[in-house]
Design a protein around this nucleic acid. Sequence first.
DNA 1: TTGAAAGCGCTAACAT
DNA 2: ATGTTAGCGCTTTCAA
Lengths: 338, 338
Amino acid sequence: MQKKQTATIYDVASRVGVSLATVSRVVNGNSNVRESTKRKVLDAIEELGYHPNAVARGLASKKTTTIGVVMPDVTDMYYSELARGIDDVANMYHYDVLLTNTDEDPVRETMAVNNLASKQVDGIIFMGNELDREVLNTIAAVDAPVVLAGSLDEEGILPSVNIDYVAAVKEATELLIRNKHDRVALVTGPMVHAINKHHRLVGYQAGLKAANIAFDDSLLFATHQDYSAGLQVAEKIFAAQATAAVVYDDEVALGIMNYMRDHGKSVPEDFEIITSNDTKFAIVTRPELTSIGQPKYDIGAVAMRMLTKLMNNEVVDDMQVQLPHTFEKRGTTINPQP
Amino acid sequence: MQKKQTATIYDVASRVGVSLATVSRVVNGNSNVRESTKRKVLDAIEELGYHPNAVARGLASKKTTTIGVVMPDVTDMYYSELARGIDDVANMYHYDVLLTNTDEDPVRETMAVNNLASKQVDGIIFMGNELDREVLNTIAAVDAPVVLAGSLDEEGILPSVNIDYVAAVKEATELLIRNKHDRVALVTGPMVHAINKHHRLVGYQAGLKAANIAFDDSLLFATHQDYSAGLQVAEKIFAAQATAAVVYDDEVALGIMNYMRDHGKSVPEDFEIITSNDTKFAIVTRPELTSIGQPKYDIGAVAMRMLTKLMNNEVVDDMQVQLPHTFEKRGTTINPQP
DNA sequence: TTGAAAGCGCTAACAT
DNA sequence: ATGTTAGCGCTTTCAA
């Protein structure tokens, strides 16, 4: 592969007969350049096929116009939809995105954040709830703003964008109870995660309490975040004699639904399900999944917008943003006729 | 936000009382350093919390250990599964990934490639079939190796990793014909794309020909690559009196299946479907989708591995790799009992 | 409006 | 085994 000789700012300058500084000014849109010389510089740039070297620029200016995105898994529809919102807004503000998958492994999360720091990213969007002490310390030590998207830390102090999980899960639970269920299961991720322990569980218990139903922890299930985990947990849910479930992930919900149907139960007649993420998975099955409606794209977009402000040292009035959620009543719940 | 003063290689050197070069050597694992000084340097690095600045390193060494990934859409399961394979292998070889979504818009694809070039990426993985002249020219002009993953250019000259689409679609078509269908529809993307015109269509026609069935272009359908496109095209397929279809995308296939079922047809009894990507979507529905089995993760992984070789100027014997495909016979086809 | 010059933090010959 | 010295390509004061 022959090295194509790429023109530098110096080549442009000497061709036009001006200094580096002048070329730099026109490239960066500085107005302090006479129109005629600007033209000449632009022409030379065109002729030479000059493209600024972003690495050199980054070293000199200490800004890379690159942000890091740390996420559990690109193939997880929930996170990839957030990522799309992030990327679109990032592009809008002329940032590029360095993407890292962590599978929610704190070790890899720590490595990812440190690595991004050494690459001098201007900011980081972090997704994933496995925010243990070490990850938190790493984030705190990084010399770049970090905002959480669709994720929460234990103390709730990091800048973040989410929905109100407590309210959403409470409403979902109440909806199921209103449909005459007194044994409603809650299916979440590990209880060591703040989002499950301090938000989803709290909302679930609040829903129970509002209906004077005693909390029964045998109705609590923690799973991995994939389809087969749903298939597996469904058997236990069945054994616990639950007749409905609030589920935190669409693929898990699908696993549960299919298990029930494969075992002779009808959904929603025998078992009702409300899922939480309303991804593409929710509408491709029959019945379609009733879901909490999350503005996923917007969560990503707003998080990224917040990050741009932080990177510019602008004031951000609300550091813990909660976007409104909705309910998408579809086929896995029995919905009263209006 | 107070600027945390980050230590530089110079700080480490002066603290230990050695030169920059020595510190650089231990950081980069150069063996030409006495064990005792190496220890001292390592200690100083630890104490100072020194982290090499990758931007400075990139400028000096002309290697960024960063690659670019250009893809249509992260939320498209087919491409995100490829991306996961790419990312894992990239990490293995200590590359970071700069990700860009293009929605298969040639203008954005061109911009993305140029932008990645200015960021001095060491290589690029390109996904998407909208490879028009301008995109191709841009790719050719870039001073970094490019490999296509799950994508094909018109001339078939760019390094690429795929399955044998001709054979796969031919087999799928034949399978349907063997099931007594003489009106098998082919659903693909736009015929201006090489992968559709020169591969899928060719395979389809070969399958027809092997069974002495005349090609009827009213059985050919081009769609967008999403669920609602499937819902829409299904009506036309129905009108064309096709009784089976080979479909290029799982979401589209799901749209077709659901349309048929919502309109009183049973799948597979009244209408058989073979889809092509075998993503997570294929197994969450009832019936599950029969699919061409593609090693998607591997396609990404092999593409990335090939890119590492190209970046190291190693010889790559086969520049157009075809990975083996399989058939996953599931519920949308009538499968003979063995 | 333009230029000169000093870095940004590191690598990579070349010496020693 | 270690140090010296140029850069890498650009931004950014500070002068003029």
